[in-house]
Design a binder for these strands. Sequence first.
DNA 1: CGCAAACTTTGATCTAGATCAAATCGCGAT
DNA 2: ATCGCGATTTGATCTAGATCAAAGTTTGCG
Lengths: 240, 240
Amino acid sequence: MDVAHSGVLEVGIPVACRSCQARHGVVCGVLSSGQLKDLGRHSLRRKVDAGCEIIAQGSESSYYSNIMRGVVKLCKVMPDGRQQIVGLQFAPDFVGRPFVRESTLSAEAATDAEICVFPRNLLDRMISETPELQRSLHDQALKELDAAREWMLTLGRRTAEEKVASLLHLIATHAEPQTATSTAFDLPLSRAEIADFLGLTIETVSRQMTRLRKSGVIRIENFRHIIVPDMDELERMISA
Amino acid sequence: MDVAHSGVLEVGIPVACRSCQARHGVVCGVLSSGQLKDLGRHSLRRKVDAGCEIIAQGSESSYYSNIMRGVVKLCKVMPDGRQQIVGLQFAPDFVGRPFVRESTLSAEAATDAEICVFPRNLLDRMISETPELQRSLHDQALKELDAAREWMLTLGRRTAEEKVASLLHLIATHAEPQTATSTAFDLPLSRAEIADFLGLTIETVSRQMTRLRKSGVIRIENFRHIIVPDMDELERMISA
DNA sequence: CGCAAACTTTGATCTAGATCAAATCGCGAT
DNA sequence: ATCGCGATTTGATCTAGATCAAAGTTTGCG
């Protein structure tokens, strides 16, 4: 896991969690260019269940979060209910205002997750104290920009089959217990969420998944667990 | 025109242009938080014709450009020729590496344009001298990230009619000689380019344009010049 | 354990937009 | 002017993927 930019390390001092009395958080620190900052009691670690909204669309959140574990989806929904997932974020990405200028986006835990929450002004302070942090944030923004543009190509110009293959490849690339020959992973998204990410319907996603299964490109266990015997095969479906 | 972040001002010292002997450039300066830096002979202003490639896909350009006039399109093309425009940039945006991590993107002048070109290391130097510049770059990256995500919603979930309306609205918002009631502008893109931006075919774009024309939402003169009598009408087509 | 609700798959049919095929338009060059 | 070519529009037809409609499956809960 790449922790080079904008990563987070636990400092390990247990502290009472304000939001959920029953659980306990730990103080976190932000790692920037090898420098570790103690955020004191201002930051706390929090478990969130799948489906939990971290940032609401249209809101002005004054908190940032840092993903420690799990997957967060960035969502846009139209007034009539049509919905598009515009990004997936994995540990150790940041979630929050430094990557969302306009507040037309919601962030929601796709899987059970742990996030490290801290107030907006704290990040501002840290940036002024550690200028390289600004650079790190810029780097993550560029990473997300690249990903968004790559996905625009997928949404605009790829077929349903290629779209599904692209998604599997994306997930495989980020959540990768892989052996020498094959790669296995759990999908962090339901079929409905996959459809909303790919600009397709649930039924089309399902049909393409069974097509991939029948043609031997993937194996599916329990709907969620995917095994890709030959990753090159999958990649060939995407580019050509 | 918003020149608040990462804007460019001409300093006005004429200098011979290296790339096209016949023309002449002017030295440019980068404006950052009110501070003006003279870039000396390292930067020069250059006219580029529509269609001219500013950054080639797959290349490692060591130059940045700043758009002074005109429109630049960011393009991705697949090995089999399918193509997707993933962004449009207007003056005074930057074009180049600080907004493109991976080199899987080409930048091309959509209209005749003037750009201000300067070498990579110059920007690096300026960033280290003026730390707020890093912040400005981050701001532009976020603006582009927002735009990309908004467009993902358009590509994934809007109908052909809504897509075309979205494009017209986008252009109108950025190139706006508007009177109190109506807005008029020239499309910086051909029908084929519009299709590549919207993930449609030329024919569908054309049909939707005539639909909009027949329903009175727009008037079209000479293929390129568009008049929108009632912008609210157009906006209503996009959101609902 | 058994039932209900939510998810997923599968099948039948429909349609928005693609593809194929001509016109038409506009513009620069002869 | 008029010729020729690329860009655009328009028309006819086709199809990938949507929509409508049932079945399975899985999971949680009384």
